[in-house]
């Protein structure tokens, strides 16, 4: 069961990956699912890379569900300075499940590295989000290379792979199934287990095995 797999994650859950791989979408949906399973949950936005699409867009949705949100005060404003609020440290001392939404690529991982000691002390799960339909990570070797760069910049090893292969509105059962071999290869070559394949709830599938259903929470700009 996917819910058991998610329930088995450590209390600090870090969502990392390539720019545009769907990290924020996964982080928001994970925070929502974990909160719905009855656990106290906090989502911290550590994205210092992307000023346009951020967890802050979903603050209302998350807070309504009872998820505490730690969002830089300047998120979605015109002040694109890379600074993070000191309250982030609260996630390492409380009894909440904490989902850390990290910025893309190695640049985003640099910000994560600040919290390395606390993360290792608390125990963590770090998910590498991969999307086969993103051209710079479309083959397993490139995806693994990207994850390796992230690890090198934050000095925190990954623990799981998340297969978020999607083509936005054009995602179909076929595009999902076509990505299974890609995800398997990444897992085999990296030695990491696959946590789940995430699929939007409006895409019908023959089997739900290994699938984590997500809502597409990406802000529409038009």
């Amino acid at each position: 069961m996917i819910s058991d797999k998610i329930g088995g994650l450590n209390k600090i859950i870090i969502v990392c990956g390539h720019y545009g791989s769907g990290k924020t979408n996964i982080a928001v949906n994970l925070a929502y699912a974990i909160r719905k399973s009855g656990k106290k949950t906090v989502l911290a936005d550590l994205d210092i890379v992307n000023p346009y699409f951020r967890a802050a867009d979903n603050r209302e949705f998350l807070e309504e569900a009872g998820v505490r949100c730690l969002i830089p005060m300047y998120a979605n404003s015109n002040v694109d300075i890379p600074c993070l609020p000191p309250e982030i440290y609260s996630v390492f001392s409380g009894d909440e499940y904490a989902i850390l939404d990290v910025g893309g690529d190695k640049e985003g991982a640099t910000a994560l590295g600040i919290y390395r000691e606390e993360i290792l002390r608390c125990g963590y799960s770090m998910l590498g989000v991969c999307n086969m339909y993103r051209p710079l990570t479309s083959i397993p070797e490139d995806a693994i290379d990207n994850l390796a760069q992230i690890e090198a910049h934050c000095s925190i090893p990954f623990t799981h792979i998340v297969n978020n292969s999607n083509l936005a509105d054009l995602t179909t059962e076929k595009t999902v199934y076509d990505s299974f071999e890609y995800a398997e290869t990444i897992c085999k070559k990296s030695g990491l287990p696959l946590l789940f394949t995430s699929v939007c709830d409006d895409v019908p599938l023959m089997s739900e095995e290994g699938i984590f259903r997500i809502k597409n929470i990406t802000k529409r700009l038009y």
Partner: peptide
């Protein structure tokens, strides 16, 4: 085949 890209990336490619 189709890929998923940001506008900036697609113009560069």
């Amino acid at each position: 085949a189709k890929v998923l890209m940001k506008g900036n990336e697609a113009i560069a490619e």
